[in-house]
Write a protein that binds this DNA or RNA. Structure first.
Lengths: 335, 335
DNA sequence: CTGTTAGCGCTTTCAA
DNA sequence: TTGAAAGCGCTAACAG
């Protein structure tokens, strides 16, 4: 059990006041070089480390941020976390990682616990809270970055970081059309996912613009896991054997679809071209390898942290909205 | 910018002293029911949340732990993180996630930053620090759980959580031998990885016990990524075409080996049987699907957190060593 | 049952 | 250039 050295210990050792030690620690001037050196020496010798807790209480800044994600193990958020962590490290912040497990109540709870810990700010990914709840809990936080979610009316208090879903959708669907796939189905992800809905909208728009007719039965909502994708793909393909292309909510769902195809005897891409979303590591690894929309997930993390810190240290408190662009990666499942 | 309510605000509002409010918050008795109710009511109404910072300073307990991993995005640690986070949530702790990026200096730095934040304890996974440095930095922490690493001589101050690598290795090699693969190579992972070395040792022991001769050229150390596995496998297979089996440091390396096989025209499992380690999601997904040693990663996380909390709240400060057992999962790459 | 007095370890005035 | 005093928001130890 280590006994923490305090500033008073150091001051006593050197024979100066607390303030002198404090000044040295914070590299403030007003300390003669000889004194500074003696203090520095004592600090080193005694192994003194200032208590961030005490400092936080006095300065009202904790040097910590909260990162809230639906699922730590989801390969999508895994990279976001990496990005946040990396930038935090460089900027000398620590990050509280919280998983909500997709549960709004748990999301609420962790946001409160972060408030208790007096984090300097929060990065909230893919929030499942409804607008009112979200507004309420966020109003308690000093700085906020919302990732993958827009909150109307709060643009002045909340930073927003989005992926251009419409663009992704357009790239994917146009690619399929350009390859002669005119009957394109969609595994649209959770019905309550804004990004899913956005992509379906763009899907419709592209087909309309291209003068290609489509059937509303071709679009199915589904949970975002691989098993879910497999099950829903099986249903969709059985119900609509006319499909020649399939656009999936994410790569996990797409891999599920691939498995459903294998199961049903569909050859990919001959019988059915499949496009995913995100470009997780797995996408390049399955066979056939997956054509997909690459989302810059790591950059999502670094950018989120950048937005947060710039808000924290800005006197004005102005907020930004940043949109990152996906790009199409063409592989074997939809060449 | 929210203005935080303080305990004094609540006390003034209700017309009682700080202590009464404090007692109510901490559910201590010595407060009459009517008073308690009035306080509770005010807290609710004013939206008061006690500052964990101030409380930490007073109690010398922060309700936070540090989790240090080499790489947040590594699918292995991803599940460990999930386990830790889950248990932390249930037990009302917050976790600081730190990535070391395999860099000993960074590891040192983050451990110091966690010390500054006065975490109640630290879970350190696969530390790359040498014994002395490790001992030094850990001596500054109240409670420690070392995962995948043993530190001799500190058993009384440090909890240890290990995977039974020997067992895993034995299961894998015996499986290969039982299928008639007698020329088994090893992609052993980083030369400085204790778990890698442990597995190589068991590999030798099993062959010796089985009376099977082997060639030391069959064992190659390599970095732990997929590309690394692919490169090293290519070299190994080219140099030792007599191999009929391959035991890999982890699944990523094994998948790399699979790719090298495809490249070189080896059929798996006909020409070469491949066994991985860990059983990450990817293992079941590649083709041929990967035979591997499943490591209970999520349990590693929950158990680590359990060990930590039991140490934190134990008056005695006794430490434990726990070993978790892997099991063989037989799939197509080595049926 | 309730309140008062001291800190926890640091920073922020303001004096010297 | 240095230091003394007060306070950040809370709890622990005693009173009453």
């Amino acid at each position: 059990m280590p006994k923490y050295i305090t500033m008073a210990d150091v001051a006593r050792e050197v024979g100066v006041s607390l303030m002198t030690v404090s000044r040295v620690i914070n590299s403030k001037d007003g300390v003669s070089l000889p004194t500074r050196l003696r203090v520095l020496n004592a600090i080193e010798r005694m192994g003194y480390r200032p208590s961030a807790i005490a400092r936080s209480l006095a300065t009202r800044q904790t040097g910590t941020v909260g990162l809230v994600v639906p699922d730590v193990a989801d390969p999508f958020f895994t990279d976001v976390v990496r990005g946040v962590e990396q930038t935090a490290y460089v900027e000398d912040y620590n990050v509280f990682l919280c998983s909500t497990d997709q549960d709004p109540e748990r999301e609420w709870t962790v946001l409160e616990s972060l408030e208790d810990k007096r984090v300097d700010g929060v990065i909230l990914c893919s929030s499942r809270l409804d607008d009112d709840k979200l507004r309420e809990v966020l109003s308690q936080h000093m700085s906020v970055v919302l990732v993958n979610r827009r909150l109307k009316g709060e643009d002045s208090r909340v930073n927003t970081l989005l992926v251009d879903n419409s663009l992704g959708s357009r790239l994917a669907i146009r690619h399929l059309l350009s390859r002669g796939r005119r009957a394109v189905g969609v595994l649209a992800g959770p019905a309550d996912s804004p990004s899913g809905r956005q992509r379906v909208q763009s899907y419709r728009a592209v087909l309309r613009d291209a003068g290609v007719s489509y059937n509303s039965a071709w679009v199915r909502y589904c949970p975002a896991g691989m098993e879910d994708g497999q099950d829903t793909a099986r249903e969709l393909l059985t119900a609509c054997p006319e499909l020649t292309g399939l656009f999936c909510y994410n790569d996990l769902v797409a891999v599920g679809a691939l498995r459903a195809c294998a199961e049903l005897g569909y050859r990919v891409p001959n019988d059915l071209a499949v496009v995913g979303f995100d470009d997780i590591l797995l996408a390049a690894m399955v066979s056939p390898s997956l054509t997909t929309c690459r989302v810059p997930r790591y950059e999502l993390g670094t950018e989120a942290m950048r937005l947060l810190l710039s808000h924290v240290s800005s006197r004005t408190g102005e907020c930004e909205e940043v949109v990152l662009k996906p790009e199409l990666v063409i592989r074997a499942s939809a060449p």
